[in-house]
Amino acid sequence: MSGHPNDDLHPESWPVAAANPGFAGDTGEFTQLTEDDVRGLSFVGIRPKDGGHASVAGTLPYQVAEKDPEAPIFSGPYEDRLEKVLSRYPDRQAALLPTLHMAQEVRGFLSPATLDEVAQKLGLSPAYVRGVATFYTMYNLAPVGKHLIQVCTNISCNLCGGDAVLAEFLKHAGTEVGETSANGLWTIIEVECLGACGFPTAVQINDRYFENVRPEDVPAVLAQLT
């Protein structure tokens, strides 16, 4: 275990409260968030940019807050990560989803030029890559705000007021569904079931789940998302 960049965030030292042992927060902590909380790093830790062990390299974005749409996708540690990912599949095409994740991690969204670059790297046709990228909802095909706020309004959350939470986010951010707020900080979208139905309303902000969000919690949450 030694020498791992994540040592100090190893599970044994994970700050887990007995009352709320999960990663996702209860309403109480919404007022004391740090940037790392928002991005989930306080809890699960920072992954190495090169992806760590090959078995998990394709799955673990290093969550950088500042995205650079011009940054190289396939250099330095990212190049190592791609090689590790490729080593886990019988063909290059299978690495497409992880590679798109990686490209989005670096650049924030998948522009036509980025899709083309990924296609060239994996030996696929750009049209094919576009077809795949548009099939999945997690790939941003246009720039989003600094914080991507996804409010679940599917049945379980809906029964417990998901619509009201969404409306509250929109009201306080002064924006529409799918749009980015004027200050460039928040893009708010409606999302399908996040798989946290017992903790309504579930809101995914960037990579982190916020659970049991009530309409009255929204201002405090937004205030932390700077």
């Binding site: 599949y89 063909d91 696929l124």
Partner: peptide
Amino acid sequence: IDITLHLGAGAYICGEETGLLNSLEGRRG
């Protein structure tokens, strides 16, 4: 026995086993 984690990208239909396999192969799910 090798183990590899593979992350989906947002598609309910990938929970269907053959949709999942297509997605794993880097296709539309």
